[in-house]
Design a binder for these strands. Structure first.
Lengths: 102, 102
DNA sequence: CCTTTGTTTCGTAATTCTACGAAATACAAA
DNA sequence: TTTGTATTTCGTAGAATTACGAAACAAAGG
């Protein structure tokens, strides 16, 4: 039997995870919208009109981005204010920069 | 009925497509490997030992990357020499840079 | 306390992804 | 022409993603 590496490295997995978060046009839209100004915040409803999906689906995409760490949500019912998670956003930026600049 | 944008924009879709190509650790590995030196080329077998998947699966990942435009393959049976598709690689680099630098 | 409002969660269905081994392919060498 | 080598394609299966509308939620206002 040939010896194989058993697992992917941490950075490889992290990179893939960030990329997957961006890998849907709706999520690209959301991130574009929020990253426009790094301190910008918005509510789910602010985007709902401009995106060709149901509100519940938009909510799931927001959840996916939150789980990936790229955004965060401040709960203030019935509103939830979303904004970029600056720390992870910067980390992702650096990872992609390093990835492409080899 | 509320007026919604019907479609995502071209750049949003393109961005998502590139991100999806990177959204798997095996493909991150492959791109890392090839982009190490932008002119580096390699054969499928060169990577097979270092990655925890079957050769056929590796082949499918290579196909996915080729279809996404990030790599290209020069056929020279039974070898196929893969390398970065420089033009699209640069385009992707710029897209991600612009995406994160807002 | 009942209703309204903005949002998320649930149930469900269709599609896509990931993976493997077996079989096919295409040229080179014997 | 047969065999060998490197790789891809095929058939299949299980898991994950994406989508929707209905229902649930939680606070505010009547």
């Amino acid at each position: 039997m040939v010896t194989k590496k058993k697992y992917y490295t941490g950075p490889q997995k992290k990179m893939a995870r960030y990329a997957k978060a961006i890998a849907h046009p709706a999520r690209v839209y959301i991130l574009d919208f929020l990253a426009d100004n790094i301190d910008k915040c918005c509510y789910s409803g602010d985007m709902a009109e401009d995106i060709p999906i149901a509100r519940s689906t938009l909510s799931e995409h927001l959840k996916a981005l939150k789980e990936a760490g790229l955004i965060q949500g401040e709960i203030n019912p019935p509103y939830i204010k979303y904004c970029i998670n600056k720390e992870n956003w910067e980390e992702a930026r650096e990872m992609f920069e390093g990835f492409f600049r080899k």
